[in-house]
């Protein structure tokens, strides 16, 4: 990747032939970030969503106090704009990863923003299930794990697939924002070339790539959700 400098000619567009060499590694970095983040978000945010649902009144272990605490944490995590969150937790990020720039540094705030978001999506998906599912799980002799896996998660799979799609798209967007703190990826490219150097070709190329990526993710997500739905 070429390192942009102040002395580089302002408005010099990267030739079209050189775009792939510039874009592909950045695109790979974007997916690396989103991929790592989504693995963490699905497992941790999913667990938080299941806990939110099951500590609520109609859940498996109604616990008003614990539910209120979880709910408060989930709201707090979603109340800050991502840019602010990212800046605010720099000391924490540094403590976890030892650095404040690059992919590792971007993964921390993205994960922290993604977990409460996904937790609420999971909670909503479970709330949309028929109320009797819990009773069905219990009277058929299900253990708590069996009740959660068969009557909740398995039944909510189409909605959960849509939730993962929505979350992935949000994370792609966040990865672009994280690009501004030197995280790499498509966002970094757009900022350094498009914004700082008025490189129209790179700017347009990143826009096209982002739009196509989101469209494809949404398309695949819809297909998967539909395949999981039953008549």
């Amino acid at each position: 990747m070429r390192i942009p400098t102040e002395s580089a000619a302002v408005g010099t567009d990267t030739p079209l032939a050189e775009l792939p060499a510039l874009l592909l590694p950045a695109y790979g970095q974007t997916w690396a970030m989103v991929g790592i983040v989504m693995v963490l978000v699905i497992s941790l945010g999913g667990a938080m969503g299941v806990a939110l649902y099951n500590t609520d009144r109609h859940g498996l272990f109604p616990q008003a106090r614990i539910h209120a605490v979880l709910s408060w944490v989930a709201n707090m995590g979603r109340s800050l704009p991502f840019l602010v969150l990212m800046a605010a937790i720099i000391p924490f990020t540094k403590w976890v990863t030892g650095t404040t720039i690059g992919i590792a540094a971007a993964v921390v705030p993205m994960t922290l923003a993604g977990i409460p978001f996904f937790a609420r999506l999971v909670q909503n998906a479970l709330n949309d299930l028929p109320r009797e599912n819990l009773a069905v799980g219990l009277v058929t002799g299900g253990s708590p794990t069996q009740v959660i896996s068969t009557t909740q998660i398995r039944e909510a799979l189409p909605a959960l697939a849509s939730a993962i799609t929505l979350n992935t798209i949000s994370m792609i967007e966040y990865s672009a924002i994280a690009g501004t703190i030197g995280a790499g990826g498509i966002g970094y490219l757009a900022v350094t070339y498009g914004y700082q150097r008025f490189d129209m070709n790179v700017m347009l190329a990143t826009i096209v790539v982002l739009i196509l990526t989101v469209q494809i993710v949404q398309f695949l997500g819809d297909r998967i959700a539909r395949a999981l739905a039953r008549p």
Partner: peptide, 9 residues
């Protein structure tokens, strides 16, 4: 159950 309450998936 009322309305049978079968698991839809």
């Amino acid at each position: 159950f009322q309305n049978s309450a079968l698991l839809r998936r």
